Every structure is written in C-alpha cells, then in structure tokens.
Simulated assay, not measured.
Amino acid sequence: MDLLLSKAVDGVTNLGDSAILLPLSAGIFLWLLAFCSRQAAGAWALAMLAAVVPIALLKFALQTCDPLSRLRLVTPSGHAAFGTAVYGGLAMLAARQRPGWAVPAFAAAAILVAGICATRLMIGVHSEGEVLIGLAVGAASLPVLYNRIRRLPPFAIDVRRVALVLGPLSAVILAWMLYHDWGLSPNGVIREAALRLGAATMHCEVR
C-alpha cells in the first residue's frame, strides 16, 4: 500500500474512531438538550448507549479466554457500530427535520459507514464477521432513536446555533486526535481485563 493510499485509508477509518465520535456524539447531545428538547436529547443518548454498550460487552465476553479466536470473532468492530449509530442518527435527524434531505443524508451516511467498514478490513484489524457484528449492533440502535423522535414535534435547526456548538467541538476533536496520535482505542484495556477475568474465574492462561 503506497503512502498516499495509506494516508487516505487512515483518514477514512479514523472517521469511526472514538476520538472523533465520542466528542461528536456528546456535542449533538448538548445541542439537542440546549436548543431542541430534553426528549430529543434523551433519545439520542439512549441510541448511542444501545450501540456502545453491547459492543463493549461483546468485546469483553469474546476476549475472555479467546473462546472464538479460531473463527476470528474476538473484537467486534466498535468503529462500525459507533459510526453507524452516529452517522445514521445524524441522517435520521436531518430527514426528520427536512424530508427533502432524507436521500442525500442517508446516502452520505451509508458512504461513510461503508468506507469505515472497508478500511477496517483493509488494514487487517477486523475480520468480516467482526465488522458485520459491529454493523448489526449499530443498525439496531437506529430504531431506538427513530421510535422516540418520530413522536416529537418538529424542532428548528438554527445554523448559527449549530456553528456555536460544532465550532468549538471541531477544535476539541482536532486537539484530541493530535494528542492521541489520531486514534483512541479501548481494545487493549478491554482485552487485558477480559483475560484477567478469565484467568481468575475459568483458569484460562493470561497471554
């Protein structure tokens, strides 16, 4: 893989990194809470938790004693799950407010998520099964958001208010990414904790 392609792959895959998605999802939550409604903010928070918590639990469970390592199902893709939830959720909010935006919004979200999934496979950090599990978990979180926001009255999208939140948020994301060398992965911590639990409860070998 030449340098230019490698940089492009890194850039796309980092769009699903927690270093971007955590502050982005938090910013969207704060924007909904401050300028829309507590119900909309709560729906967003619940949908994000519905994507993040199952993936974290699956990562933990599957890495305890490496029970499915031969099938290459060890660490389901958090990039795929969280990326699907955040970008799909953004598309859903846009379509909810402006029906004419539905097709381009969902198309853009699909392209982003497809790029994230493809690059996770290209750099060899996940198997096809792990990416599919991540996609399934992320996609399952979207009905949680839809079922709650569809009952809410329309809320206005003020571009100036969006800029007020996303401007400082963009600076925080860039600073965070630079500080963490363009990545923030919980996999190492999860794996160490899982293997230690396995060693303590199932007499597994800690490697």
Rank of each mutant, 00 (worst) to 15 (best):
A200Y: 07
D181V: 02
M92P: 03
G16H: 03
V53A: 09
A45I: 14
L164Y: 05
L32S: 00
Y179R: 00
I28L: 15
A41S: 14
G83D: 04
D158K: 14
L4Q: 02
R207Y: 09
C36Q: 14
P143V: 14
A8L: 14
L197I: 01
E130S: 07
Y146D: 06
L32E: 02
M48G: 04
I133E: 06
L112E: 04
W31E: 04
A41W: 13
A95Y: 07
H126W: 02
R207F: 08
W182D: 02
L15S: 12
Q63T: 14
A61S: 07
F82Q: 07
D2L: 06
A156V: 06
T201V: 14
V172S: 01
S25C: 02
G188W: 12
H79T: 00
A194M: 11
D158E: 12
V9S: 01
D181F: 00
S127Q: 01
I116W: 01
Y146F: 06
A109H: 13
G129V: 00
A95F: 09
R151N: 11
E130H: 08
A8S: 10
D66T: 04
L164T: 14
L132Q: 06
S185Y: 10
L5I: 15
A156Q: 05
I173W: 08
M48I: 03
A45F: 15
A43L: 07
A94C: 11
S77A: 13
F35P: 06
L21W: 03
L93T: 01
L178D: 12
F106M: 12
T13S: 07
C65N: 05
E205M: 09
S69Y: 09
R120Y: 08
A94V: 04
G198L: 15
I190T: 10
D158P: 01
L62D: 05
V131D: 13
A140H: 06
R151I: 02
S18V: 06
A175H: 04
R207P: 13
L174A: 11
M92L: 15
A95P: 04
L22T: 07
G100Y: 09
H126A: 09
R98A: 02
P153W: 06
P143S: 12
V86L: 14
T75L: 07
R161I: 08
S127R: 05
L4M: 10
F35V: 01
V113E: 02
T64L: 13
E192K: 09
A45K: 05
L145A: 05
A156P: 06
K7L: 04
V9H: 10
A85K: 03
P54A: 02
V53R: 06
M122G: 02
A19N: 13
Q63P: 03
L57E: 06
L169Q: 07
V206E: 14
V103K: 15
V131E: 05
L3F: 00
H126D: 05
L152I: 02
P168D: 06
